[in-house]
Amino acid sequence: MRLSYDPQTDSLYIHLVDRPSADSNEVAQDVVLDFDAAGGIVGIDVQHASQHADITRLLVSRLPFNQLEAA
């Protein structure tokens, strides 16, 4: 899983898996789910992210990591 934030568009994208999206569905205002060709969810796009969440901090709890990277 990977998080990407674009400050120019204030968009937060949560990459759940490394597969291309084939379809999208806006499930709430400013929240879009991306699906692969088989209908599995591949990512979550949050537009105007700073209005919906505190993007200045990230707290990770009880995740079974093998690797943690910061870029």
Rank of each mutant, 00 (worst) to 15 (best):
L63T: 03
I41K: 07
A71G: 09
T9V: 07
Q29S: 11
L16S: 00
L16I: 13
T9K: 05
S11H: 09
L3W: 14
S50K: 02
V32E: 02
H48E: 07
L63I: 15
V42H: 01
S11W: 11
D45P: 03
F65D: 04
L3I: 15
E26T: 13
A53Y: 15
D34I: 00
I41Y: 00
G40K: 08
V46C: 15
V27Q: 12
L59Q: 15
D36R: 01
H52P: 00
R57F: 07
S11G: 09
M1S: 12
A28S: 08
A70N: 09
L12P: 03
V46S: 02
Q8P: 01
N25A: 11
A71H: 05
V27M: 06
L3E: 09
V60W: 00
Q29A: 14
A70D: 08
D54K: 08
E26H: 01
D34A: 05
G39Y: 05
S61D: 09
V46H: 00
N25E: 14
L59C: 13
L16D: 02
N25Y: 15
G39L: 06
F35K: 11
D6V: 08
D45L: 13
S50T: 04
Q47P: 00
R62N: 04
A38M: 09
L16P: 02
L33A: 03
I41F: 01
S61M: 06
